[in-house]
Computed example of a mutant assay.
Amino acid sequence: MSGVGPKEQLVSLKKSLTRSLDESGEQRVLDCQSACSSVLHWISYIRGSELSGNCDNLVDALQGGAIETAGCIAMGLVRPALFSLRSQIDLAVAWLFYKDHPVEWESVVRTGEGFLLKRDVFEHFSKYRNQFSPRLELLDKHKNRKLSDPYRVLSAHIHGQSSLVVPKFRKLHELIYPASRCDEAVKLQAEVAEYISDIFLAYFGDKWASLPSEVIASVQLRVPADKLPALFS
């Protein structure tokens, strides 16, 4: 770290953190809640209709990840928020797979090994759930989000895949990002939420009559009417 002592740096960090919370914290939490509303609707639906008694804690963790993201952004801690954003995708995808694979989930819990990530789960769904990939491709073609797969961008930050995404902090107060970067993080939450919602819809599309009305209404605004039968069949 820089030549400034830890006490002085902590004082500066506290001031920056307090300023971020006092000036924009409440609004950022509200914005994050709005940005991830589709995921919250899905969580409500899943708890009411799709829990299997196996790995249900992953659904709770998905909600926890959204709360963690909002809290980090409210404080101005954008880099930790990126980790939470990617975890939302991992948790959603993991729940979809392990809810029907209790033996594999028990092994993961017992050994800490064998946890399948997104690519592996998608390969499984492509092989064993015929409509998953076509539905996801259709939703991606008519997406609102800018990023086709926000998971890739988030992974680049987490793994430090270029000089543009590695941490460059020299003092503790620099952990608190400026307002413009916090606003970008909120927008990324919206991208992640739509992506997760599309994954769920690709999986549960044949149950469209019982799915969250807010999700269905949003998709109907995105996808041309003549394409909807392919999505909900």
Rank of each mutant, 00 (worst) to 15 (best):
V108I: 11
L82E: 08
P102F: 08
K118H: 02
V103P: 01
L136N: 15
V59S: 05
N57Y: 05
R86Y: 05
A61G: 03
K143W: 00
G53W: 04
V103G: 09
W95I: 09
F125Y: 07
E106Y: 03
I67Q: 01
R129L: 15
V103K: 14
G53R: 08
N144H: 10
G64I: 00
E50A: 14
E68C: 05
E137Y: 02
V93F: 00
S107D: 13
G64N: 09
R110K: 14
F115H: 05
S126F: 03
V93T: 12
Y98A: 10
I67W: 00
I73E: 02
Y98D: 11
N57L: 09
V109N: 08
Y98Q: 10
I67T: 01
P102D: 12
E68Q: 09
G53N: 09
G71Y: 02
F125P: 06
D56P: 04
G53E: 11
K143A: 12
K141A: 12
R86M: 06
V78D: 10
F97H: 13
L62T: 04
Q131A: 12
F97Q: 05
A61F: 01
Q131C: 07
Y45Q: 11
R135A: 07
W105S: 08
R79A: 13
W105V: 07
F125T: 07
N57S: 14
K99S: 13
H142V: 04
Q88Y: 01
C72Y: 08
K141D: 08
S52Y: 04
D100R: 14
D120N: 15
D120I: 07
R119Q: 15
F115V: 01
L96C: 12
D140L: 07
F115K: 02
L51N: 07
E104I: 03
D90C: 04
G112S: 09
A74R: 02
F83H: 14
R47L: 06
H142Y: 15
C72Q: 15
G76W: 05
L82R: 13
G112N: 10
A70T: 01
D100M: 14
E104N: 12
L136K: 14
F132H: 08
Y45T: 09
F125N: 03
D60W: 02
V78H: 03
S84M: 11
R47Q: 14
S49T: 15
F122H: 14
Y45G: 08
L82W: 06
E123N: 13
W95G: 08
Q63D: 13
